[in-house]
Write a protein that binds this DNA or RNA. Structure first.
Length: 498
RNA sequence: GGGCCUUUAGCUCAGUCGGUAGAGCAACGGACUUUUAAUCCGUGGGUCGUCGGUUCGAUCCCGACAGGGCCCA
């Protein structure tokens, strides 16, 4: 810690107050304090009290001091508890005496957590209050709170989320929104008899998605390990073993760029359903999203923080990826179009071609370039190129295309669903192809997971699979950036951090 | 990875055409028994992100680095 003399004034003074409390035999951090009820309960119980009433009811409450108005012989403070509920506390000379009033004024600062015991009353202005008979410091704050009335900078909110939660109502509601959505997702799965499983996050071989992994090292096993980029290959092993309907909600890690819609660690749902296919998965996905909207907002129409409304109700549009491309570029493009045709179209659109891109990648780039921004309402984009979907079954009718959809909401990808590839021989061919791409420098290519192939060779039932970003779901529901949906997004330490 | 912007008191921000800085809230001292962003009087608080360069003199101009943001790849 910094030298006591070097501390900024306000930090030094609070440390001195803590020391002063100790030296007069007080306790700045007691093991417990009186508390008979919550601020919320008092507010609920005494909703309609008229002005200037004494109820005769004595309670002990706790809260953080967020406003303090010290007058000569009658002091006022606003206490706030975790959910944001506030209650006024009053300290009068004739109730607590000169010595205690002096302690209240001099030792208690904004930001301190206190316990107040007294009568529930309303003030002469009608404010519901607790009129103290006694009070006790519950925890001394050694740092000042930021100004309540000016918003914290974006960066401070993220770096000191605990402060953000104290001062900003939206921070509190966002923090509670996420668990509400989680609960809803689990209920939707549970009502359809899906089992929640937990599969490894530390993996010997990363796979299940196209992404660069984080690498780490196990001392005990003396081997490199990867943080998972997706749970897919383990969830499929579950289905081989007869856990026919499974889901997992947990973190994945991708060693890639971070921006307003990407975080290096992010929560994801993955689910697999034996005897389902990409259509049943689309239905399930819609149910998950609509149930979550209903659980959180009471409606399929969700209200974004900036006031915009988004209707997630009803049936959702389905468009074909290649039809959308064809319409956008004015000529017929299919899964069988040659790579040269696609390159020509891409160049015409001004897309910078990466020579490493395979055919399907170019088609996807064209799609993203032309169609994505129009997809505000929830839309399933059906039929992705087969060569970029190595774990997906070929379309039952349309050549060159896989039974894969992406769900777009608000112009970003929210979920993706498939009819899963279950032929272990074709799967091996696809993964060998991936391994070749990896060897030729594609850092996102999957490895050849022999154990997974071995599991598949035992017979995997026909099934549908789906993955959905939980952070993205919250973004779709609220319109917030990803860093607002995550309590503690990764931030670089600053040089001046104490 | 490239370009542009940004970093000043505890917080949110002004400002200095180069002469070491201000406001509001917060803090400290005082007055006030019905305040609620209380009010009134008074006071203190800053390595102006870091390190270099130019200059008589740099918070300001230039460069590098670090943090943050936006756009592009």
């Amino acid at each position: 810690m910094a030298d006591e003399d070097d501390l900024p004034e306000q930090l030094r003074i609070r440390r001195e107050k803590r020391a002063a409390i100790l030296s007069r035999g007080g306790e700045p951090y007691p093991v417990s304090v009186p508390r008979t009820t919550s601020l919320l309960e008092i507010r609920n119980k005494h909703k309609e009290l008229p002005i200037d009433v004494a109820t005769g009811i004595i309670e002990s409450v706790t809260g953080r001091v967020i406003f303090k108005r010290d007058t000569g012989k009658l002091c006022f403070a606003n206490l706030r508890e975790g959910d944001g509920t506030e209650l006024q506390a009053m300290f009068s000379l004739d109730k607590i005496g000169d010595a205690q009033l002096e302690i209240w004024k001099s030792e208690i600062d904004l930001g301190d957590i206190v316990s107040v015991t007294g009568e529930v009353i309303t003030s002469k202005r009608g404010e519901l209050s607790i009129l103290a008979n006694s009070f006790m410091l519950a925890a001394k704050s050694l740092r000042p709170l930021p100004v309540e009335h000016k918003p914290l900078s974006e960066e401070s909110r993220v770096r000191m989320r605990y402060v953000d939660l104290i001062v900003r109502p939206e921070a509190r509601s966002n923090a509670r929104l996420r668990p509400a959505v989680m609960k809803s997702l689990r209920q939707t799965f549970s009502s359809r008899d899906f089992l929640e499983v937990e599969t490894p996050m530390l993996q010997v071989m990363h796979g299940g998605a196209a992404a660069r992994p984080f690498k780490t090292f196990s001392n005990a096993y003396e081997m490199d390990l990867f943080l998972r980029i997706a749970p897919e290959l383990y969830l499929k092993r579950c289905v081989v073993g007869g856990l026919e309907k499974v889901f997992e909600i947990n973190r994945n890690f991708r060693n890639e760029g971070a921006d307003s819609s990407h975080s290096p660690e992010f929560a994801m749902i993955e689910t697999y359903e034996a005897y389902g296919d990409w259509h049943t998965m689309a239905q399930l996905t819609k149910n998950l999203v609509q149930d979550a909207a209903k659980a959180v907002f009471g409606s399929h129409k969700v209200k974004h923080h900036d006031g915009r409304e988004l209707d997630l109700g009803g049936d959702w549009n389905q468009i074909s990826l290649f039809e959308a491309i064809s319409k956008a570029v004015g000529e017929k493009v299919t899964g069988e179009s040659s790579i040269d045709e696609l390159k020509k179209i891409a160049t015409k659109l001004g897309i910078k071609l990466d020579p490493k891109w395979i055919k399907g990648k170019i088609a996807e780039e064209i799609f993203e370039h032309t169609a994505i921004k129009t997809l505000t309402a929830p839309t399933f984009v059906m039929g992705f190129p087969i060569d970029t979907s190595p774990l997906v079954r070929a379309h039952r009718d349309t050549p060159g295309v896989a039974e894969k959809w992406d769900l777009y909401v608000e112009g970003f990808e929210l979920a993706t669903g498939y009819s899963e590839l279950i032929d272990p021989v074709i799967q091996r061919e696809r993964l060998v192809e991936q391994a070749k791409l990896g060897a030729s420098g594609d850092l996102e290519a999957m490895g050849l997971d022999e154990d997974f192939l071995k599991a598949m060779e035992h017979g995997m039932p026909p099934m549908g699979g789906m993955g959905m970003g939980v952070d993205r779901l919250l973004m779709a529901l609220t319109g917030l950036g990803i860093r607002e949906t995550i309590l503690f997004p990764l931030v670089k330490p600053t040089a001046g951090d104490e």
